[in-house]
Design a protein around this nucleic acid. Structure first.
Lengths: 226, 226
DNA sequence: TATATATGTTAGACTAGTCAAACAAATTAA
DNA sequence: TTAATTTGTTTGACTAGTCTAACATATATA
């Protein structure tokens, strides 16, 4: 049985490596920042989790999860996201309120509880933020995130977030009809100025690469090809 | 903010004193047994909780909750019992499965969560074991438990549990039309053999003292007289 | 009332998780 | 290729919660 703290380290490591589009390992400082503790603390814990065969760790090198560590991390992610879904759907919480409570609820130990909750919610595939929920077997679609700029012409993707949070930017996002979970189809890229032609809700738009770079997406089509 | 452990001490103290029909204070050994730790540990914690003004504690004397300690204990009891109700009603847990999970859930910190849960369950007055659930203001009917054997002739009481869990016993309970929350009226006690005449759902029955001793009840009439 | 038994307390030790500060290695830039 | 900077590690210390073992007080009983 792992402590709350150990579970949190595994979860952070998962988010920083497996759920990241860009890296598959994480450094001590990076983990410390993510967890809100000091690097020294992370260092101790990495050694401890290595002993338990849950993380791959070597002095002065980046760390990652072992197969077993990953399995546990997925269980925690599953719990977190199911609870978030429960809070929004059954208890009318808003998106921004759920995280803090789900951080607590994710550590409750009861397989039956979580499977029943899954059933009550009708086996959802994604939480209110659009993040994938692993099923009871631990299977999950890990859709790597990237920006709309990187999306391949012809693919259809889903918006999952933004990088820029300025009012001007968000206003434009809104004007285009974009929001979390909105489907976007990339029609074409102009060679001479990198403008991107996209379709949102059946409507065509042409966006700049600068704008596209601020939109975070996941692409099921890209992932299936792997 | 109290730790899980501190919360558990307050809860135990509440159950051992305020919710007990017989005592209003608890000793160190008694608390230790209830919490599953050693008396020395309880001793340290009592001193700590005294510092925080949550318990009344003096060396070599019995302890009890302060007003503030009681308030917090009631919040925990409320959470515990609402979660139990949720598990049984919404996730089809059985009575005997809920306790362990509720022990974990009761420590989740979120006023909104618990009030929304209360609402989802339609503001129940009692949990699946028949124990009273305090409302959002912390008001609760504390009905001391006793056995049907101890009930006063003429009073009407409510069954809240059983002591015996054998199939033979439960079968007989069922045959009499008894179940949790069932109202029972005590009509008479025979002097020569202690048989008890009761009325359940308008039907008269005569039960043995041995049987009556296994039925746990609460009596609003007795409590009001205090 | 003297003694045996109950109950309660203290002291010292251990573990988990954390940090600050000093130190070491690796990387980047001059 | 040396120096500056970034990143990672170690050491020693602190807190919370727990325990064992020794000790102190209170209560019950002979």
């Amino acid at each position: 049985m792992l402590s709350f703290t150990e579970e949190n380290y595994l979860k952070s490591l998962f988010q920083l490596t497996i759920e990241s589009a860009t890296k598959s390992e994480a450094g001590t400082n990076e983990l410390a920042a993510h967890l809100g503790v000091k690097p020294a603390t992370v260092n101790d814990m990495l050694k401890k989790l290595k002993e338990k065969n849950l993380v791959k760790y070597e002095k002065y090198a980046k760390s990652s999860l072992t197969k077993e560590g990953k399995k546990i991390a997925i269980e925690i992610i599953r719990k977190h996201r199911l609870w978030e879904t429960f809070l929004v759907e059954k208890l009318s919480f808003t998106w921004d309120e759920v995280h803090e409570v789900a951080e607590q609820l994710e550590h409750i130990q009861s397989k039956k509880l979580i499977d029943k909750l899954d059933e009550l919610l009708n086996f959802p595939n994604a939480d209110p933020h659009g993040d994938c929920i692993p099923n009871a077997k631990g299977e999950m679609n890990i859709l790597p995130r990237k920006t709309l700029l990187e999306e391949i012409v012809g693919h259809q993707c889903k918006m999952v977030g933004v990088k820029d949070n300025s009012a001007a930017f968000l206003k434009y996002v809104d004007k285009l009809g974009l929001s979390i979970n909105q489907t976007i189809k990339v029609k074409a890229k102009q060679d001479y100025d990198q403008q991107i032609d996209i379709v949102i809700n059946g409507k065509k738009h042409s966006i700049s690469p600068k704008f596209a770079e601020q939109i975070i997406i996941v692409c099921p089509t890209c992932s299936k090809k792997k």
